[in-house]
Design a protein around this nucleic acid. Sequence first.
DNA 1: CTGTTAGCGCGTTCAT
DNA 2: ATGAACGCGCTAACAG
Lengths: 350, 350
Amino acid sequence: VARQELNLGSRSVTLKQVATAANLHISTASRALDPSKSWRISSRTVQRVRQAAEELGYTPDLVARGLKRGSTTTIGVIVADLENTFINPIIRGIAGRLERDGFVALVAETLNDHDRFVRVLGHLLSRRVDAVVCSAASLGDAPLLKRAVKEGLPTVLVVRGLPRSGLPSVAPDDGLGSRIAVDHLHALGHRVVAQLKGPGNISNFVARTRAFDARVAELSLEDATADETAAEPTVEEGRRVMQLTLERSVVRPTAIYAQNDMLAIGAIDAVRAAGLECPQDVSVIGFNDGPFSDHVSPALTTIRIPGVELGERAAELALELIQDSDRRFPPVELPVSLVVRESTMPPAYA
Amino acid sequence: VARQELNLGSRSVTLKQVATAANLHISTASRALDPSKSWRISSRTVQRVRQAAEELGYTPDLVARGLKRGSTTTIGVIVADLENTFINPIIRGIAGRLERDGFVALVAETLNDHDRFVRVLGHLLSRRVDAVVCSAASLGDAPLLKRAVKEGLPTVLVVRGLPRSGLPSVAPDDGLGSRIAVDHLHALGHRVVAQLKGPGNISNFVARTRAFDARVAELSLEDATADETAAEPTVEEGRRVMQLTLERSVVRPTAIYAQNDMLAIGAIDAVRAAGLECPQDVSVIGFNDGPFSDHVSPALTTIRIPGVELGERAAELALELIQDSDRRFPPVELPVSLVVRESTMPPAYA
DNA sequence: CTGTTAGCGCGTTCAT
DNA sequence: ATGAACGCGCTAACAG
């Protein structure tokens, strides 16, 4: 019994050995073991082969199969930064969806460095991955990725889209998120707001900025946003830019729209460092609702993106593209939603 | 220039084509491109081959190479749960170290399910990974992993060791961590303490429990630990067990040793739910110092494990094992350290 | 239904 | 210093 559960298959047992053990030709064994071919084989033979395989502990060599078939049932996943925990749900979603089809994810990191991006992509190409799902695209990366597509590598963007590139993408509805955020602050009574902008070379932040500006104008709110932009979407940068916002604004905003949770957390730090309180003096709303956003202090009001689903949908597209690489998919935008917690409240004067 | 940067190599360009373009035999081209063989080739020829490869955009087919060489420069990484953000630094460490040697990590998840573990391991075997780094081992898993070793798959454990299994491992010094934690609470003046135990089938929690018990006895502290153990190291379970601890203890502990940060966060929730305050009424110390532990409320006092380094060292061992699979490594224990933040303070009566 | 043959792309003998 | 030939393990024609 225990013996059975531990049966992993032997690396060294080859299909030929199975065939020999079953007194059959290797290709018969091959077909017997392939569910899509075994109907051509007498069921008695199939049984015989299966049993021989079982007894010897045969494991198909996926490398050899990959060479022969020209496909590896592997897809490359390119992420910007593995320490950025909000991508965990994305990876989970991708891996989960892939598993159902027997695919596996090869995860590689770019650290937002373009040279690394090029190298990583080349490496994945070299590994003959069947497709790539990329959540690390910066705005200048379209030509690079299109080059990969031209090489016959199906490519799907996730989270970070590349507008007007024609590349299939699955991204959160950033415009909607900004509008929901601004509306929330407006409804609470805030009249002077500011945003903490993420890097301008990432589509999501551009879209969030634009939609925020538009909504703020529509609602005739006062915009106290600083000129400075966060160089990276990190806690440190959030702290830095928030400090600048506080120092330089002629009239202090009572609410901050941070373009992601990291920036929001940094902003809250800066608020405290300035001797103020969040949310009493300054409300802060974030974006993403990553792990822990509900446990920071104060619990973060934020825009939730459906992380796992983004990953799943992206993997799904990749899988379909593998089947038919000529298919075209319009960009997918998944809805986001408001999660109200403790970091926002009506302004003091309301 | 831009053209150059985008040069990813063509999937379809084969070594043979390069050889033909250079008017050479394929095996000469092969040697010319292999740094460890190219010294046998006239440098003029090497140049010629390199140039041809460059111009055609040749990319070595790592699948074919893998089949031929019998190794894939790929190592499998088995983790319990991708959503558990404290493994991010581990993965980062592993991937970072591997990259230096041109290796790549194939990440797979077990969800702490034994059947999945078996399947995952079999799959990695099938993919012919050159080694496995596993941070998902439960106490019963030694036979399974040893089976893999017997199949010729170098295996190293990271974070979660398997004592007396003989399997190489790189883990935090859990005993030290417990002692540091208890000493910290003791130094603050606490006399009645309790621990929140993680699952008993994971070596780290067992070791932490044992060392805690020993230290508490040495210092003659009163132990108000509940019988109940967390079924998983999660916030929810921390909440549940802490509630039980509060309800059932005859004399309420003034300080809690949570065996990881998740449990600690849950414990703090439960403290609040009971109408108490952390740290004023109950101090809480955690373990791991994962991402965000410094931003929860109150900022968590905890035992820091060197996540990235654990990953790096584990990858290092795996790499060495690949070179010489007969090598034996004694278990490595990396030191942990106390990080004092806001969740601990002297007891009210001190 | 089953056996035969021919490679996938590459590295490594063994010759020359 | 280079070429020829073989085979890694598997699958996909093409027989029969």
